[in-house]
């Protein structure tokens, strides 16, 4: 079944998007493979958080550099994504372990009863890996939307200052907030539906739902991804405003490299300011 759906998707993508459509499809497949490799490495016992962060970086490279090419837009977006991902990892490391949402809940007993729970692997790290993976797609989308739009603004009005560019970046960001939250919300509702039906069927009370592990696993993931998507907006706008006003026009390649490094430095300042 998924083969037929995949073929339909490929045909449609080529029909609508031509060569770029085919490339998009290939990138989607590449991402699935990267994801599988990441998960496989975690299962082999390599540190879950480290593998996931590297996996996310590779995914970012595929989505940004391979589909959209290496340029100031994608390099800046990449720096912004890295910053938000690390920030998010730090926050979720705390929330994830103190709220006890690792592993499986009582409701999952039927699914996991075949397996031994003694796997010699810390499930808290696996949970964090899962959350980071869930976030990467959404923040990449937002980051590239902002940096591309700001690039166009700068092309049309090259004399704008850094703070003017930042403000216009925030305005662009505000326009996409509504649609981004909708995309995420409905995707998660689609996944969440069976669980909600389950809660209703077994007459869970609100207090039971809100404290249950199975609800919190999904809920914390959904809401924190939403917060992550919001944080990328000012960071991407700031980074892009900075790199557009601080680049040296003749040597494009090199200036991007240094911009990237400088950006990661300003990132820490920006985070504390936020």
């Amino acid at each position: 079944m998924e083969f037929i759906l995949g073929t339909i998707l490929l045909i449609l993508m080529i029909a609508v998007g031509g060569i770029r459509g085919a490339k998009t499809f290939a990138a989607m497949y590449a991402n699935i493979i990267i994801l599988i490799v990441t998960v496989f490495l975690i299962a082999c016992g390599v540190n879950a958080v480290a593998v996931t962060i590297i996996g996310c970086a590779v995914i970012g490279v595929v989505i940004l550099f391979w589909i959209n090419g290496v340029n100031i837009k994608t390099v800046t977006a990449f720096a912004a994504i890295a910053t938000v991902l690390l920030l998010f990892a730090a926050v979720m490391l705390y929330i994830g372990s103190s709220s006890h949402i690792q592993g499986f809940a009582d409701e999952n007993t039927e699914e996991i009863c075949w397996y031994s729970p003694d796997i010699g692997l810390d499930m808290r790290q696996v949970t964090l890996a899962m959350m980071l993976m869930g976030l990467i797609g959404a923040i990449t989308d937002t980051a590239i939307a902002i940096t591309s739009a700001l690039f166009e603004v700068h092309e049309n009005n090259p004399e704008l200052s850094m703070s003017e560019l930042f403000i216009s970046g925030m305005n662009i960001g505000r326009d996409i907030i509504g649609t981004t939250t909708n995309t995420l919300l409905f995707a998660y509702i689609g996944e969440f539906m069976t669980l909600v039906i389950w809660f209703r069927e077994y007459e869970y009370s609100l207090a039971e739902i809100i404290n249950s592990k199975v609800f919190c696993q999904d809920f914390l993931q959904i809401v924190s991804s939403g917060a992550g998507c919001m944080t990328i907006i000012p960071i991407a706008a700031l980074f892009m405003a900075y790199s557009l006003t601080h680049r040296k026009p003749p040597k494009d390649e090199e200036s991007e490299e240094t911009d990237d490094q400088e950006n990661t430095e300003t990132a820490t300042v920006n985070d504390t300011a936020c």
Binding site: M13, V16, G17, R20, G21, K23, T24, A27, M28, N31, I32, L35, V39, F40, I42, A43, I63, I67, G103, F104, E111, I112, Y115, P117, I119, L121, M123, V126, T127, A129, M130, M131, M133, G134, L135, I136, G137, A138, T140, D141, I144, A145, T183, L184, A187, Y188, E191, D218, Q221, S225
Partner: peptide, 24 residues
């Protein structure tokens, strides 16, 4: 088109990571 399909891909697939690891 490209970024949107990836948003959906990651949102959906990440949920099954713990189960995959347990099975592996």
């Amino acid at each position: 088109m490209g970024t949107m399909t990836n948003v959906l891909l990651f949102t959906y697939v990440c949920g099954c990571i713990p189960l995959i690891i347990l099975a592996l």
